[in-house]
Computed example of a mutant assay.
Amino acid sequence: MNINCIARSALEGNHKSLIDQYKTNLADVHALQSTLNDEILVHVVQELALSDAEHAWAKEWTSDTATIFRFLRHHRFIRSFALEAMHTTLIWRLNALLRLLVMHPSPLLHCLPPPICDPLGRPLVFIRLSELLTCEEMETESVMDGLLISLERLRIHLRSLNELSNREITLQCVFLIDLEGLSIHSVNLDILTWFMKEVVPRYPGMLGAVFFLNYSWTYGVAWSIAKRILPKSAVARVFFPSREELLDYCSASALPSNYGGTLLPLHLVEDPLRLDEHRVHDHRVRASGSRVRGTFGLRRTTHQKPSSKSIPPRSALNPCFGYPTVASLTQPHMVHPTRKRKRDLLLTLSVLWWKKWRARVILLLCFLLAASLVRKRARMLG
């Protein structure tokens, strides 16, 4: 779909409808916040024995009016459904997300700094999809963790924009997805499935529009098929603009030079998701080091923020490839293997052998199976 006058009108119409829904349901949003803070959060604090810092970190989320509205809207303004989803998400944040706050955001997402925005005042977020969906299987977990941190900081960034400005509330972002270098055959479907099933329900409604950039004709054909089965609300937010159409919509002053704009190249443009602006929330980060999570629950501990991070044995970032390695967080160049066992080496060699020969092995097995079936059938006929 091109960003022509009709599409621009549709974007403006969707944006106006969203703002109208926010204003209309603001009383219900505040009522949900009261229930979350006065009933659900109080119960969670007692059940999980949260510290003051953890309680403050959790309350920051429940007091984010835009987030509560997005949950309510995602569940079609049915209060009971939205409240149940927010309760589940709050537990997930305390059990899973909190421990990740010491990590850095994903370098695959890059948000342009304010006041840069689209014509409707929404932040622009670039994603290099080829790097996100083609990572090695053993790096999948670290990629997922970094992506969660980026989305959490993006949520906080949206909130800070609304707190520091008297302009109309900002509820969504515009994602510009760069498809350059992406091969459909090498896509890591685990990340895509995880994102749709696990992440979207916990960060609903943040996506205002998607612009796919540097696409080939094959993606146009795939999209022409996909949009026939997707809901109209999703189709209305997806666009495949040419560079000229993107410049016509965003203007050159809002785009990096490698995308036709007058800004610095993307990697040199300041990213608010990586700035030290989150120092005001450092008590929430410290809270992430005050708990150890087990399979069946939480227990209190007093250990400090970890000073090192383990690197998967077969990660491309591991200088001791094949062996579990630990890297210092304060001195990333200081790495050393935690152990050197023969079985680690044998496992690595097996994984590498399978990656190289699996296609031929599968083909050979299929051939042997077919030959066996033909021989068995010949014996039956004979």
Score class of each variant (00 low, 15 high):
Tyr219Gly: 03
Arg237Ile: 09
Thr134Cys: 03
Pro272Ala: 08
Leu36Ala: 02
Asn318Arg: 05
Leu347Ala: 10
Ala234Lys: 07
His267Val: 10
Asp271Leu: 04
Phe175Tyr: 07
Val361Phe: 09
Glu84Cys: 09
Leu108Tyr: 13
Asp118Ala: 02
Val45Met: 12
Ala85Leu: 01
Pro306Val: 01
Phe71Ala: 07
Glu270Tyr: 03
Leu213Phe: 00
Val235Gln: 07
Gly205Trp: 00
Thr35Ser: 15
Val44Met: 11
Leu373Gly: 04
Pro105His: 10
Met196His: 13
Arg153Cys: 05
Val238Arg: 01
Asp38Gln: 08
Val374Asp: 10
Phe77Ser: 06
Ile149Met: 02
Pro313His: 05
Lys23Tyr: 11
Ile225Lys: 06
Lys16Trp: 09
Phe240Val: 00
Leu266Phe: 02
Thr134Phe: 04
Ile177His: 00
Arg279Trp: 11
Ser251Val: 05
Gln172Ala: 06
Lys356Leu: 10
Ser308Met: 14
Asp38Arg: 07
Thr35Glu: 14
Arg358Lys: 12
Val45Gln: 12
Leu161His: 01
Lys305Gln: 15
Ala49Val: 14
Leu94Met: 05
Gly297Phe: 02
Ala316Ile: 13
Ser130His: 14
Ser308Asp: 12
Asn14Met: 13
Pro312Asp: 07
Leu164Asn: 15
Leu298Phe: 12
Val269Gly: 02
Ser328Val: 03
Cys250Ala: 10
Pro306Asp: 06
Arg153Ala: 05
Lys376Ala: 15
Ser290Trp: 01
Leu36Asn: 02
Met206His: 12
Ser106Asn: 00
His336Ser: 15
Tyr22Pro: 12
Val45Lys: 11
Ala327Trp: 10
Glu47Gly: 11
Pro107Glu: 06
Glu60Pro: 01
Arg70Trp: 08
Val174Pro: 00
Ser165Pro: 00
Val351His: 13
Tyr249Thr: 02
Asp178Ile: 03
Thr348Trp: 02
Ala316Trp: 13
Ser242Gly: 03
Glu12Val: 06
Val235Ser: 05
Ser315Trp: 00
Val29Asn: 06
Ser160Leu: 13
Cys250Pro: 00
Phe239Arg: 02
Leu83Gln: 06
Gln331Leu: 10
Val210Phe: 06
Ile127Lys: 09
Ser242Leu: 09
Asn37Cys: 12
Val351Leu: 13
Pro306Cys: 06
Leu32Gln: 03
Ala209Asn: 04
Leu94Ser: 09
Met380Lys: 15
His281Thr: 15
Lys376Thr: 09
Ala66Lys: 03
Thr88Pro: 07
Arg299Glu: 14
Leu363Trp: 12
Leu381Asp: 07
Asp20Val: 09
Ser186Ile: 10
Met1His: 09
Cys5Arg: 15
Asn4Lys: 03
Leu48Ile: 05
Trp357Thr: 08
Ala58Asp: 01
Ala10Cys: 13
Lys355Gly: 03
Tyr259Ser: 01
His87Pro: 00
Tyr249His: 04
Leu97Asp: 15
Ile362Pro: 04
Lys197Ser: 15
Leu298Asp: 14
Thr140Ser: 12
Val174Gly: 03
Ser216Pro: 02
Cys366His: 04
Pro204Arg: 03
Ala252Glu: 09
Pro204His: 03
Ser308Cys: 13
Met1Val: 11
Asn214Gln: 04
Asp248Arg: 04
Met196Arg: 13
His281Ile: 14
Met206Gly: 12
